[in-house]
Design a protein around this nucleic acid. Structure first.
Lengths: 151, 151
DNA sequence: TATTGTTATACTCTATAACTATA
DNA sequence: TATAGTTATAGAGTATAACAATA
């Protein structure tokens, strides 16, 4: 195709955008979250809620604020999240023994079962998405690179 | 530290989450967008608006719907975006010659100047963020990997 | 019948400020 | 004074449905 016809065809030149890590990060994340939401629609949780569950599972007894900070969220956003997960019997608030202002968050037995099911689903989803990459070493490299860019 | 004290300290174990590409993508993107927004606060545009400008610059004459589709957005969301960029005299709507239902989008001269300034700012931001990586080859590899994960 | 731009609408996510009870 | 949880609220961002004009 001649350059003169460039404006008239229906292909798009992403130009600068294609070289911008910030933009490519966004597109990759959009794709992950869209398919993630499909995979999880029957379980009734979003990617954000799964993150809360995963952190409580690995860190039982932490306060809402501690979990929020670890996820980079505001503590006010945790209220509705914990309310929902408590209604689903996945996690529970227990009064902190050392500080009567705060609650400690724990998994329920139902929550442990749910987490087992959900994390298997997450890892299957991960495997499917990263199957386009060369090998496990490349996935590990990507994870390390993304961690480096997150600080 | 002994494992028994794990619950009591203030470090967080990210557990499974640290191995999940979807989560690490989100954290990296949050970091990029937060600093991007700082860098761009004086120019009055968001990352999303910059993407629209960049695409119009590389593809003058496209319709709103074509730009929206290329960005993965709904066309209804383009109305406010184009309204704003037109008010800022950055891009302009011109009646399409071949289809009276649609507008073709073009850069203004002001828009070209703006884009030059803005894209320099974006690339500086990119350079600062990716300076933590080993070299340019690693950045290129990351971009290619992210593209692979976006389809 | 289908598509473009548009409007209205709603829903999620996120952030801010203020309140209370504790520390 | 400062902090934890909460509430109310407001602002993005995003998606859906419907409409008029046009294809």
């Amino acid at each position: 195709m001649s350059p003169e016809n460039k404006d008239a065809d229906n292909t798009i030149d992403y130009g600068l955008l294609d070289k911008v890590v910030g933009y490519r990060l966004r597109r990759a994340q959009m794709n992950f979250f869209a398919t993630f939401s499909d995979v999880f629609s029957d379980l009734g949780i979003s990617p954000g809620l799964f993150a809360v569950i995963a952190l409580v599972e690995s860190n039982p007894g932490r306060t809402q604020t501690a979990i929020a900070q670890a996820l980079g969220n505001d503590r006010s956003a945790m209220v509705a999240a914990v309310d929902k997960l408590e209604n689903m019997k996945i996690i529970e608030r227990r009064p902190s023994k050392s500080d009567r202002r705060s609650y400690a968050l724990y998994m329920t037995q139902t929550g442990n079962d749910f987490f087992k099911t959900a994390s298997k689903r997450v890892m299957d989803h991960e495997k499917e998405m990263t199957s386009r990459l060369k090998d496990e070493k490349e996935v590990a490299w990507l994870l390390e690179t993304l961690r480096t860019l997150s600080d």
